[in-house]
Amino acid sequence: MNQRTQFDAHPEAEVLNGFAEQALGAAERELVLGHLAVCARCREVVALAAEAAAAEMPVAVAPARKAWFGWRMAWAPAMALAAVAVLAVFVYVRHRDAALQMAQIEAPVKPSAELGVPAPGLVAVAPVEQAQVTRLAEVKKAPEPVVYQSASAGMMSEVNSVEAAAPPPAPMVETADKAASYQMAEVRAFDQASAARDAAQAEAQSARATQSRMKMAAASAAPMEMAGASTAPAPAMRAMAAAPAAVRQIATLPSGQTIVSSASSGALTVAIDAGGEVFVSRDRGQHWDAVKQQWTSRAVHVEWKAAAAAFELANDQKRIWASTDGAIWTQQ
């Protein structure tokens, strides 16, 4: 019937590429593997094409081990930082309450001894605040890659890891812009409170001889601390919780389910819905393609790792897969 050429015996370029890009079904894949096992020509074709693809994206596969290592090791400093942050906030709140009580009740009598020696917690508060400022400065400098997180996941990341913190997706979500401005307001308020506190401490040290000056410092520092601590975090937290909701509204997945985790780099966005299905969008969330499952169990979290220039997907057993294009995932 059809005249056969010498290459009819081989799979077409389409099929070989589909195999290399994990786009074939199980039956077809098995068929191609069977052919590759006995055909040196097609093995060479697939290997060369894969090599060219890797050359186009040098970080795609080569540093996979490093990325895996980085992922695991990232928990140690992140947990340490989280512990310091929690301790600092705890001590800060206690100290603020104490300072307020002193300002209201005992300020005229003996504030100098208390404020002259900074509480241990205050030493730790400064670096945490510095970290927040640095992080937000980075967001301003480099808006991409952007990582969307669900409300809970995003907030956990905020506490657990500076690296995993979710910078607000400025160009896409208006609410996220508000989140950024709230966060900046929070930082400014913290800065004011911090400056006032530092000023108060300096004043206290230098004015041990002059009791009257210390009274003024204590009286002015306390209300500013109150303003910074009580008003700023509330809208910031609300906005942080609202940002993923906005993403959910805008980015409707084909499955119709809500997004539980998503991450973006440039126009590329990967999202996981409530059913554990993974979708990828190449046009900033306007259109979504379902990603064939290449991981075990259920996908629960995805994030963009700038260091590896790859997305990392975690399943519910905390196993990690990496991808540069959101479509092909490699176990780490």
Binding site: E14, N17, E21, E44, L48, A49, A52, A53
Partner: peptide, 13 residues
């Protein structure tokens, strides 16, 4: 089936 660029690479190969 698979990206257009991947298909082109495979044809080149």
């Amino acid at each position: 089936r698979g990206s257009l660029m991947g298909w082109l690479r495979t044809i080149l190969a």
